[in-house]
Structure formats: C-alpha cells, structure tokens
C-alpha cells in the first residue's frame, strides 16, 4: 500500500518537474544567453539538493514501475510482490549512493 502511495506522489512530482523542464529547455530556441542565464540560476546548493531529490523520486518510480510490470505479467509476480519491493529498495540504494557521491561532490565542490 505504501509503495502505491509512493508511486503516486513521485509520479506527480516528476510530472510537474517535466513541464518546467521542457519550458526551460525551450529557451535554447530563444537565445543562448537566455538559456544559459536560467540554467545558471539552478547552479547552487539548494537546487542541487532538489535535483538529488528529483533523481531519488525518478529512480524509485522506475524500479517500482518495473515491479508493477512484474506483478502484472509474471506468473509468480503476485506471490513475490513483497520481496520485489525489497529488491526495489535495495536497487534504489545501490543506484543512489554512487549518484549522490558524484552529484553532491559536483554541487558542493564549488568549481
């Protein structure tokens, strides 16, 4: 049940980010200055943490989505759904640890 709640919340968060992401990327069509200026406002620690949270949401939604596909299409999916949730959480940690080390060292590396 909580994986269902988590899937909905991360889904909505990602959708609203996507709307903004297409709009800001569209600034490349306006001018290089406009795009680089707006992207420049993202290059600070607060946005960096927001990006980390966004990737955390995407990675959870991705792995839990694959779990839903497994439950719906794999004969034994239903039987193993709880174990599959553990697999989702473990994979989430395995992906997030190297990502956070890399991303946060760039964000807080001050270069």
């Amino acid at each position: 049940m909580w994986s269902w709640v988590g899937h909905r919340i991360t889904g909505v968060v990602i959708f609203f980010f996507l709307l903004v992401h297409v709009l800001d990327t569209s600034l490349v069509r306006v001018s290089p200055e406009a795009y680089t200026a707006v992207i420049g406002t993202y290059k600070n620690p607060i946005m960096g943490l927001g990006e980390a949270g966004l990737v955390a949401a995407i990675v959870f939604h991705a792995f839990n989505g694959l779990r839903i596909v497994a439950i719906d299409f794999w004969k034994k999916g239903n039987k193993y759904q709880a174990r599959l949730l553990w697999a989702v959480l473990i994979l989430w940690v395995v992906v997030m640890v190297p990502f956070l080390i890399r991303h946060l060292s760039i964000v807080f590396g001050g270069h």
């Binding site: 490349v28 990737v55 989505g65 990502f99 991303h103 760039i106």
Partner: peptide
C-alpha cells in the same frame, strides 16, 4: 519500460559523465 532506459541514459549522460551538471549550458 522504455522510459526507464531513455531516462536513465539521459540522466547518466547529463549528470554523471564529464563535468556533470555543471557542464550544462547552451
């Protein structure tokens, strides 16, 4: 399923490779 591949590739190339997110400009 397709989006998992597309978005993981997108994030890897834009955030992990080279100078990471700081390299993003026009």
């Amino acid at each position: 399923v397709v989006l998992v591949v597309l978005i993981f590739g997108h994030l890897f190339v834009n955030l992990m490779v080279g100078d990471g997110i700081h390299a993003i400009d026009f």
